[in-house]
Amino acid sequence: MRTVESEIGAILTGTISAITQRSIFNRLGPLAARPVSQLSSADRQTVLSELESSVRLFARRNSAELIAASARALGVDGVGGPAAGATAGAAGTAATAGGTTASAKKLPIEQEKDIATARLEAWSEAVRIGLSKFTSVKVATAVSELARNIVFYAGRGTVELRVVRDDKGTSGLQIVATDQGPGIPPAKLEEIWAGTYKSQRGMGKGLVAVKKLVDEFQLDTAAGKGTTVTCLFRGER
């Protein structure tokens, strides 16, 4: 029985390294190990739209060919365009009442390997909504810093990626990193912003770095209540 991983792996091999394939299949979760023949059509769509964003990221030259071949292997027709848009919308956790949030993805951050997953996820989301290559790398780096802070200082938390539209309809990405950790005491916060804080494990520059990277930045923290960082990358036009 051919699983999703063996079937798609055969297509990607030669263009995408084994290590990168690993991370692509990790993102598919249990679906990767299921035999293709046993997938429901919704599952097939999910696999395909996940593949689309990762393959576009890693195989710059012939991503279209690879996605088309993957679609054939999965028995899904009509690649990209409306179909991909529809699944992406359905995969998100529904639009909010306000109407500015187009879709959202909440990622649990509990251990070091979640940091890599979060930044990969953020990167492909940024590419998917049309942010430039440079901005997408900035998005991934900011998420990496925020996720790392959660693992180091709070132990666990979440990073939420929200696609937001401005009044001109341009998509941007809002990142909300939340934890219920110890919070940052005011004295330490002062040191952090002054650039004099030095942490044991990192550079102590994570928050400052994120603030410099993003277009909008907001920090809510209280001792004993945890920390929430909300920041925004505006869409480019």
């Binding site: 930044r119 990167w123 790398v137 991934a140 780096t141 990496s144 810093e145 790392r148 494990r201 990192g202 550079m203 520059k205 994570g206 770095a209």
Partner: peptide, 10 residues
């Protein structure tokens, strides 16, 4: 390496 953050820099 596609992403280098402050921790990896350190």
């Amino acid at each position: 390496v596609e992403i280098i953050d402050s921790y990896i820099t350190r």
